[in-house]
Each structure stands twice: as structure tokens, then as C-alpha cells.
Amino acid sequence: MKTALTIAGSDSSGGAGIQADLKTFSALGVYGMSVLTAVTAQNTQEVSDVEELSPKIIAGQIDAIFQDIDVDSIKIGMLSNEQAIRVIAERLNVYRPYPVVLDPVMVSKSGYDLLRPAAKNALLTELLPMATLITPNLKETEALLGYPVTTLREMEEAAKALVHLGPRAALVKGGHLEGEAVDVLFDGTDLHHFSGERVQTKNTHGTGCTLSSAIAAFMAKGRPLAEAVTEAKCYIQRAIAEGLSIGHGHGPTHHFHEWYTKEGIKK
């Protein structure tokens, strides 16, 4: 069985972060492993607190995995601080894994800062050059580049600008774009558009985590980049369409929609 490793924070409500990544890996037939960077106190309405793990235990988790298990792909999510970013980059430089999907988680839906402002430069200089693919949404794209991105044409130029910063490819997600939901992939040579029907639902908690981990799962299984993005988009589209009304805020997507109904009945 192919394997995938997620390096990210924990979501106590189970809809995003490490929990969403591992659910996605399992749903797509990939053995999931995890390196925890932080523990969040959150639910479907808000992130109320974050406890960051020490660089020592982050490094220890990475070493424990790579010294024993073959890793076919990596997804990197919430990193929180500069020290975590630097130790992750240092340890991954030792093991040289490929591919690496980097989801630059910066702010929660409720507005909680999940990446300290001082850590942005470390993200740009230490991890972006190691990434096979970076998957920012529009707000994260604007934060990384320092200017607004509001149109499809600007998304195309932003994807190119992000690749200029170091990653091999960039997928700028247009879920917050007015009108049709379009994601733009620049693979270093060509631009690709991925359109999807906009689903009218509030149950979108963890969509970014789920999409990036789905791409990592398909790449672990040997799919070329554009094909992995295409299959991951199909997966997340259905997961959103069948999202779960759990909690009083933004409910989670249904990671196991192929296997169970919303009521938990096996299909």
C-alpha cells in the first residue's frame, strides 16, 4: 500500500487539520501517517486557542517515521511559528522526500491567526523551495505575494508569481472568487483551469486541508500533477456536496461519502 505523511496541526472537532488529512488518505486508499505541529481548541464555529509543540518533538516525529517507513508523499499544513518551519525544513532536507504538497494555512475561517506574521519569511525561504505544489486560497495568495488577487486573470499571474518564489507548481484556489468557482494551476510551464459547480452549503470546514491531502494521496499513487489535482477536485466536490450538518457553525465535509450515507449507513 502507498503511504502519505501529513505534517500539520490537530483540529479537536475533527473536520480539518491532521484529522481531515488522515480521513482523506484512508478514503482514497493510502496509508496515512502524521507529524503533529500544534494542538488547537476549535469547533465548527471558531478556533479559541492553540498550543504549539516544541521543535524537538516535531523533529523526533519526522525522524521516527523516515527511519522506519517509506514515505510516498507529504502534505504540509498548519505550521504556526518560525521554529517549527525551520526544523521541518531541516529534517526534510535530510530525507529528501518527494512529492511535497504545501498548504499554507494562515488564518482560520473565524479569523484566528494560525501562522504568526514573523513566520511568513521562513515559510517563503525555507519551505516554498522544497514544495512540489503549493495550494493557497485567495487570501493566502494575497498574504504571500503582498497584493490583492480578485479576478481570474490575476489568479493566473499570481500562480506564476508563486512559482517564481520557489515551488515547482502552484494551485491558486478560487473558492472565494465571485461567480464560478475556478482553481488555477501553473505547473511551471502551462496554466490549467479547474472549474467546479459552486455548492450552496455552510458545511465547508476543512475543505482546504482535504483538497491538499487528496492531491498528496493521488500523487502517492503515482498520478501526474494535473491528473492528481483533477481527481482530488472530483473528490472534494462530492465531499462538499454531501457535507455533514454537525455542530452549530461550518460543518465538515463528508470524507467517506463513497462508503457511507450522511446517516452512517453503508452504501
Rank of each mutant, 00 (worst) to 15 (best):
L5V: 11
D11L: 11
S12V: 12
Q19T: 08
T24I: 04
F25S: 00
V30N: 00
N43H: 01
Q45A: 11
E46F: 00
V50I: 13
E51V: 09
K56D: 15
I58K: 02
I58V: 15
A59N: 06
Q67P: 02
I69S: 06
V71P: 03
D72R: 05
M78K: 07
L79A: 10
N81A: 11
R86Y: 00
R91K: 15
V94L: 13
R96M: 07
V101P: 00
L102A: 03
P104H: 03
M106E: 12
Y112H: 14
N121I: 04
A122M: 03
L123H: 02
L127G: 05
L128F: 11
L133H: 00
T135E: 11
L138F: 10
L138Y: 08
A143I: 06
P148S: 02
E156R: 15
E156T: 13
E157M: 12
A169T: 04
V172Q: 11
K173Y: 11
G179Q: 07
G179I: 01
T189M: 10
V199H: 13
T201L: 05
N203F: 10
C209K: 08
S213E: 02
A216E: 01
A217D: 05
P224E: 14
E231I: 07
E231T: 12
C234L: 15
Y235F: 15
I240T: 10
A241C: 08
A241V: 09
G243I: 01
L244W: 06
G249E: 13
P252T: 12
P252N: 12
H254Y: 10
H255P: 13
E258R: 15
W259G: 00
Y260E: 01
T261L: 05
K262I: 06
G264W: 02
